[in-house]
Write a protein that binds this DNA or RNA. Structure first.
Lengths: 148, 148
DNA sequence: GGTAAACCTGTACCTGGGTACCGGATGCAA
DNA sequence: TTGCATCCGGTACCCAGGTACAGGTTTACC
């Protein structure tokens, strides 16, 4: 009989640190596994799957708290009011879009600074025609212009 | 006599916390200002400008360590070993592009999961036709060019 | 039965960018 | 002079997501 996977094997299979297993267990993401007579953890195959699910969800931008809720929602969906994956994915998608938009603005500013030939922030800050937005760091459009 | 700006005034003018001033001073981003006879900091106008420069650079994705170097490079351009803003901005632009590419992949995955109607990660993980990549999402480096 | 690797618990530490709290000193106006 | 706002230095703490270490067991293999 397969006596179960030891923590090292599970960690290896899922590509995480052993400490991470215990960390997830403490956080309630990973169920407490069986133990050997000596107290060593013995996992079943499912643990590896759960770890992969966690990593996939993290990769999609969910925090560990969010992943915890997602897993729990799946476990006991007893008419809870907890929003499911669909709902959360929609929200997350909006967040990702916002991040992309923000980074796109940043990208544009960097590109403009390169084009303008900016090479010294302190000089630029004193120079009214520098395209870097030193005031009003709020994230809106900044049109390019010749500088320095 | 303009006796200088007190830390509260500088913080207010630059839109940062007073503690942040001392934090930046400790980190070497902000020069140590004059002191009143009683030991209170007295800043000049330039301090506000430096703070704005720091915030702008942060906003462009530079870490405080990087900002420190950028400011030092400007101050005394000793040798050409240290890359200037141009060089660093070019590097940072590539980093930002990588992040955008990464987020775009994530966005696409989320959108696909929504389309497919995924609503339970543990079910999905057991389901071969789920579009969420449970294996292979391990690391964050997907940005090195077109792979397919 | 010996030994080395793997594992156990508990606690402390890491990164990055700040914030908060403390008890005491200063600045400034009335 | 009194009273209150502000500031001082030092230290501790916050967030997330882990990672590392110490000192002691257990397991596996020869």
């Amino acid at each position: 009989m397969s006596s179960g996977l030891r923590s090292g094997q599970v960690a290896e299979a899922a590509g995480v640190n052993i400490q991470t297993l215990r960390y997830y267990e403490r956080r309630g993401l990973l169920a407490e596994p069986e133990r050997s007579s000596g107290g060593h953890r013995l996992y079943d195959e499912e643990a590896v799957t759960v770890l992969r699910v966690i990593k996939a969800a993290q990769r999609l931008g969910f925090t560990l708290d969010e992943v915890t809720e997602l897993l729990e929602t799946g476990r006991h969906r007893h008419g809870r009011v907890v929003p499911g994956l669909q709902e959360r994915a929609r929200t997350k998608l909006a967040e990702v879009d916002a991040k992309i938009a923000d980074l796109t603005t940043i990208r544009a500013t960097l590109a403009t600074a390169l084009e303008a030939g900016c090479d010294d922030l302190t000089v630029c800050a004193a120079n009214a025609c520098c395209p870097i937005p030193f005031t009003g760091l709020a994230e809106e459009n900044r049109h390019a212009g010749p500088c320095c």
